Amino acid sequence: MSEVRLPLEAIKGRGAASRLAHRFESVARGAFDDGWGTLEQGEHAPPKTEVIWEDARSIITSNDSPDVYFDKSINPYRGCEHGCVYCYARPTHSYLNLSPGLDFETKIIAKRNIAPLLRKELGRKSYKPEMIAIGTATDCYQPVERELKLTRQVIELFRETNHPFSLVTKSSGVERDLDLIAPMAAQGLAAIYVTITTLDADLARRLEPRAAAPHRRLRLLKTLAEHGVPCGVSLAPQIPFLTDDMEQVLEAAWEAGARSAFYHVLRLPWEVAPLFKEWLQVHYPDRAERVMARVHDLRGGKDYDADFATRMKGQGIWAELLAQRFKKAVKRLGFNQERVELHSRDFRPPAECEGQGSLF
């Protein structure tokens, strides 16, 4: 009897096409056609989002990677409902015994004690304030933030203590918190960066199924600029033969009000590589081999190379071409003329941590 191979299918509203087994699992399971047509009859409905509460042991994370611009970060959530298939944070779900595929975008870990624990950390006598990046692994304004408001709690505390922060997002949800962010930006305490991978709405819907549409992110940049918030655009990741509109994205972002820009090339660590290859076969089978061949050109013949010197920009002639295109477009438009400097000179510890008791 010949083996029955099931065709890969896109799952509506999700980036991954399967619950890919993580690298620590000893047994892998998959859907099987038993001949009764159950797969086609819709018994396997699109998975819903589930929030799993976590009592975190710490909130502020230190970073010592030389190719990353921040030294400290905060991630209110683990996993991300945006479902970006290329997300380099997907493999972190493996440590939770969850799939980097569908579980990463449907099982969201939320740190319910984020505000009181962060207050305690900021109040330590040994604490030295410096800029903190929010949502560096997963988007701090993903859809569940609308109800949970964990990111808002963090920003409220930063507002109270005059603590500088920045964040990168694909969500228009950040507009909700402009009542906190705009006054902080005026004091040199906040900067916002918006990721726009491509202006192609159809491609964006497949790449980042639950993130804001490209035109909505441009409108977000305009809103931020109108409120006096320093804002920039992230063109990450650059994917060969897919996101080939770098110059157009930069032009649109400049017109919307962004004044800084940066990019990274596609990163495929651990389980992200098979997930991305699966995604290519689902959505762009005609160019899957070409895309991966160019990725290998950027990575010295491999799916990925974690070397700090090359992991963000790649290596070889195609990496140099991307760098030249970016440099020329940025110079022509006027990006990155002035560096945004966020300061911590006005920081004050949280009130409870200064020994001030309540009057009541």
Rank of each mutant, 00 (worst) to 15 (best):
R287A: 10
F165I: 03
I74L: 00
V249N: 03
L207W: 10
A351G: 06
K331W: 05
R294F: 15
W254Q: 08
M246P: 13
Y304A: 01
V168P: 12
S171V: 08
L218D: 10
F165S: 02
G123S: 02
R176A: 11
R205A: 15
R299H: 15
W279V: 06
S172T: 14
M292W: 14
P350T: 01
H82Y: 14
E354Y: 02
R259V: 05
R205H: 12
F241V: 07
M246T: 14
T49D: 11
L20I: 03
Y127S: 01
I181V: 13
A213T: 06
F104E: 00
C231W: 09
P143T: 13
S62C: 07
D297Y: 05
P237H: 02
V282I: 09
W318A: 01
N113L: 09
P214Q: 01
I109A: 03
S58D: 13
N162Y: 02
Y284C: 09
E247T: 14
E208D: 07
E160P: 04
R146G: 04
P237Q: 03
L6S: 06
P47H: 08
E247D: 15
L333P: 14
Q356Y: 13
K128P: 01
G228S: 11
T198E: 05
A236R: 01
H227G: 10
I52S: 07
T138M: 00
R299I: 07
R159F: 15
V272C: 09
G232S: 07
K277H: 15
L178R: 03
T151E: 13
F326Q: 05
R14D: 07
R299G: 10
T38L: 15
V174I: 09
A329H: 12
G42M: 11
K328C: 09
D139W: 05
V340H: 04
D307G: 15
L122V: 00
K149M: 09
N75L: 05
H283C: 10
V340L: 09
K72S: 04
L6M: 06
Y69C: 07
L157G: 04
A306T: 01
K149C: 08
A185F: 10
R205S: 15
G232M: 07
F241L: 15
Q142A: 12
G135S: 00
D55H: 15
P76D: 04
A323H: 08
G173T: 05
D103K: 10
L275D: 10
F360V: 14
I317Q: 04
M312F: 06
K222N: 06
D297W: 10
T151C: 11
Y304W: 15
S94A: 15
A351M: 12
L342R: 03
R119M: 04
P91C: 04
D67Y: 06
Y263F: 15
F241I: 02
W270A: 14
Q281D: 08
H82Q: 08
P66L: 03
R124V: 03
S62K: 03
P129Y: 00
H343W: 00
L96D: 14
S172C: 14
A201Y: 06
Y86R: 00
D307N: 14
R287P: 11
